[in-house]
Each structure stands twice: as structure tokens, then as C-alpha cells.
Amino acid sequence: MSTLEIKDLKVSVSTDDGPKEILKGVTLTIKDGETHAIMGPNGSGKSTLAYSIAGHPKYDVTGGTVTLDGEDVLAMSVDERARAGLFLAMQYPVEVPGVSVSNFMRTAKTAVDGEAPKLRTWVKDVNAAMSRMNLDATFTQRSVNEGFSGGEKKRHEIAQLELLDPKVAILDETDSGLDIDALKVVSDGVNRFREGEGKGVLLITHYTRILRYIEPDYVHVFVDGKVAEQGGPELAEQLEAEGYDKYLPAKV
């Protein structure tokens, strides 16, 4: 079972002109096994939602609640959230020079599971996950995200998703900058994850393209820090045809 419940979430960032509210009351529930797509124009607050759920220190939560299976996510530290079962695939994964992918993955897996993975099966699992993502065996010896191409970074994120096996995955524009082959590889990875029991996915994207490969149960249109409309997969098709214009304030 895994339910991620976001209620009336309000989030600000501090700017030179004082705090600026980015999320203005977001309510969204991802139930057991559901995939939700969040679509919206640039600057609508989609990524802020993702990073706020993950606990990035830059964002101040000023109101509302986020719970995972009833547990108060907002009261948890960043790493506690991950250990509780949240995973954020980042749009711009960060370089960590001198730390190998292999060391990083093992450390993360140990942290999430609360015990070190069994060495023999772990190496096999890692190699298999890499190979499914079309990453060659030497990839694990490289420093985390250092010198990776855009596509390699995203595939590395999804390899982590498969290995860490969280309850709910938040994918922040994982599709951006991917060519069609890489998009398929990444989508296959997410779909394998979804096959697991009760896995939730919050898929944040600017484009409808990825939704052809990862079919959502619900689509939310995100505008100006709020959900402006929600519906089924057909809403994505409508957006594909009409764009976001009708949700935006009329241009003068």
C-alpha cells in the first residue's frame, strides 16, 4: 500500500524582494498503484512541487500537509523522506566528483534498506539495472554524474529508481532532452517499476510525448502554482492539440 496525499500545499522561496509564493494551495492524492501526470507551462511551479515533496532546503512550506501512508512527510528530513519510500528523479542530477556510481548506489541502497545488500546478488542487480538502461559495465566506476551526457544522467536516475525500489517515484521532467531511443529506455524502466505492487508515480512533464510510453491514470494541468484542471489521459490529448493557452491569463 502507498498513498501520497498532498493537501493545500503552499510553498514560498525567498528572493531579494522578500518571500515569493510559488505553490498556492496544491491538493493531489496519489493512491495505491496510480500514475499521475502533472503538466503545465514553464514557471507554473511543477518542479517546485517535486522538490518541496523531496525536502529541498530552498523551499519554505508555508501551509498545507504532505503525508505518505499517513506519515507526516514535511516533518521528515530529506533522507528520512527517501527512507520512508519517496524517490525524486531530478531534472538536473548533481555531479559528485570522486564518488563512484558503484559506491554511491551501495551507500544509498544500504541507507534505504537499513542493511547492506548481499554482495553477490547486489553486483548482479546493479549490472542488470545498468544494462537495462543501456549503460555499459564500466559506467559504475565513473564519478556520479561527472561528465555524463544528458541522456546518461537520466538513465542513471532511472537505474537508481529500479534499484532503490521506493513506494512513490516523482519524476521531474525526466523526458526533457532525451532522444526517442533514450526516451523508450527510460519509459521502459519506469513501467517496470510500475509493475511492482502498489507503486505510485508522479510524472512531471512539459510535453505529452512521454505519456505515449507511460500511460497515466490521471492528468493534472498545473498553472500558476495550482491545479487548474484534472482529468484522465484524454486531457493530455486535448493539451497536445490546444496547448496551455486557455489556462493562461489573456495577453494584453
Binding site: A54, G55, H56, P57, S77, V78, D79, R81, A82, R83, F87, L88, M90, P93, V94, V96, F104, T107, A108, A111, V112, Q160, L164
Partner: peptide, 10 residues
């Protein structure tokens, strides 16, 4: 943040 978002303690 990146490392901690994978469950690794501070």
C-alpha cells in the same frame, strides 16, 4: 541534497 534524497544521512 542529491545524496540525501537517496536516503543517505547528512
Amino acid at each position: 541534497f542529491y545524496l540525501r534524497s537517496r536516503g543517505v544521512s547528512d
